[in-house]
Design a protein around this nucleic acid. Sequence first.
DNA 1: AGCTTTGTTCAATTTAGTTTGAACTCTCAG
DNA 2: CTGAGAGTTCAAACTAAATTGAACAAAGCT
Lengths: 167, 167
Amino acid sequence: MGDLLDGDQNEMDPLERQVVAMFVDGVRVLGLPRSIGEIYGLLFISPSGLSLDDLVCRLRISKGSASQGLRTLKSLGAVRETDGGADRRTYYEPAIELKRLAGGFIREQIRPHLENGKTKIGRLAESTREIEDPDRRKFLGERVERLETWMRSGGRVLPILQKLLGQ
Amino acid sequence: MGDLLDGDQNEMDPLERQVVAMFVDGVRVLGLPRSIGEIYGLLFISPSGLSLDDLVCRLRISKGSASQGLRTLKSLGAVRETDGGADRRTYYEPAIELKRLAGGFIREQIRPHLENGKTKIGRLAESTREIEDPDRRKFLGERVERLETWMRSGGRVLPILQKLLGQ
DNA sequence: AGCTTTGTTCAATTTAGTTTGAACTCTCAG
DNA sequence: CTGAGAGTTCAAACTAAATTGAACAAAGCT
């Protein structure tokens, strides 16, 4: 079947490859794995939702990768599931509003680190107060304060960033 | 020598380790290698500049790592060299103003990717216009436009971000 | 110039992180 | 209840990236 006009979705055309490649290095900047870029990229240029199987056979990645990649993308709010009608499987569509994408990334990847950092700096401030040598204590105190300033700036900037990207 | 009171700078104390560890995962978020976090971290809590050799023996990293790490940090504007007086070697001090750090990161790591992305989207727009099927062309045109919007938002936000962090 | 110390470069190694694939669970259809 | 398809999990295999270390270059000192 289908030798001349094979409507199967098993090969990406060059333009799709181009887009997928773009997203692959897009997500590398964000420190996310290649497969996530591939998956999001393919969803992004597909006019309708794709199933896990579609992703597996068009991107030639394993079911495992696809499943994990989709999970991460869901947690970032970058894809949403749509119920495939009569079909038993789930279809996925990309979120394409920058606000949503940035928001998810900030919430899932940046905020946790900021919080974590604040905690660590707290402990650091603690240790610093117990230093004997007054010169050293003073110096370290200043540096800890600097770290706290950084964190405050970060905390202040994130919401503004989200707001600015939401247009 | 120096069994009781060894003033040599060969070991980090626990507090220094704590700070270095903090910076190590700080830089991981930014997609930079561990050694860069270690180097910057140690400089950050050292009251005076350190030489490449100081870094090598206190962090137990190779000269190669230290040299490359310092190069990256210099390119980011995160360390500056100071001339070690009578000494022949160079000493390094950290830049601690968030504005400067963020500025360097944006300039060296983010801007290039943005520019690169714009170029690729340009080519993509080109390819898209040559698509036969009008439905497909329309859909792809919309997606390319979306990408262009993202890039514009990014370009607009970066300078504001830098300004906001400069306080 | 020759010797010594500082710093750089890069191929080889090591390490960290990603992907795979087989085994598993869950759910629905018959 | 059983069988088949959809999706998940995770140890092992693989890949990409960082680190090492040895050879090299540059710069001062005698």
